[in-house]
Amino acid sequence: MTKKVYLDHAHLLHLLKAMIRIRHFEAKCVELYQAQKILGFLHLYDGEEAVSVGVMEALTPEDAIIATYREHGQALARGVDPKCLMAEMMGKLNGCCRGRGGSMHFFDRKRRFYGGNAIVGGGLPLALGVALADKMQRRSAVTACFFGEGAVDEGEFHETLNLAKLWRLPILFVCENNLYSMGMAVERAEADIDFVHKASGYRVAGEKVDGMDVVAVESAARNAIDRIRSENDPYFLECRTYRFRAHSMFDAQLYRSKEEVEAWRKKGPILRFQTWLEANRLIKPEEIAAMEKEIDFEIAEAVAYAEAGGLEPISELERFVTMDEVPA
């Protein structure tokens, strides 16, 4: 029944590379933030890479994505160009949204990436609409809707799960449960911390998956997508994960101990996968070195592209407040 992920050498390298790309991209973002080239909020995905990378492996280019405000990883894993993302981080005209969205609002129409959303739970109803539009237009696409466990506190979660099941919409709900909504520990916010159980309250089937294990996430997502397509029903994945860094750059982390963070770091998705690959001689040290070099080159290119980017003229500030036409 359970579909195995086909773990050939190229695929293993691909998964590792996708996760390291996100980690290194964000490390560079922190540097640029400290240099005040990136401003505002910066919510790092550090520690949660396996979730996006695993889920995106199961999607086709026709599928749609609704992302969160911690969406650097989701966008990179979807294949959005790191150059446009870095330029967006730096508020440049050559950014994916011309510098209007920034870190929390990446959009990429071509990749059906329907946006980072900085209102917790605000993306869930959008997933209903995108999935409904696909269904009504007889497209077989699935909408992957990412949200944190904090979104479960919002009414939108409950309204959306109910409607998704009622209307039998092809939505993969991906709950990135990193155990804290900002500083609020999940057990302090939820009377019932079993999210799969909550989803079942709306008769949406689901399962828990180890969100620190990229292969487990990919396998679960592939099975979920198959099931959504064949049974014409939504599905719910709770990916248990952890963010290694602060909620945003303004967070003193008074709500958790250093020991707790360190314990989770030892279970980190990159460390764990890379260690497993090395222990089983599935990857050579020089392959990792070459991979990291390639990624760092790619990121350096992205930074150079962003640095070279111009600024949106102030005369264009009101452009797109109203649209002249619906983009084709």
């Binding site: 749609a64 869930l124 109803p125 959008l126 609409g129 995108v130 409904l132 009504m136 939108e156 209307w167």
Partner: peptide, 25 residues
């Protein structure tokens, strides 16, 4: 299919309208 009664979930069905408009409807 085209005249859709919704539950009393204003945020969800208005948001669904937004999403559907983004995706071609």
């Amino acid at each position: 299919e085209r005249i859709r009664d919704t539950p009393l979930s204003e945020s969800a069905f208005v948001g669904a309208g937004v999403g559907a408009a983004m995706a071609g409807m």
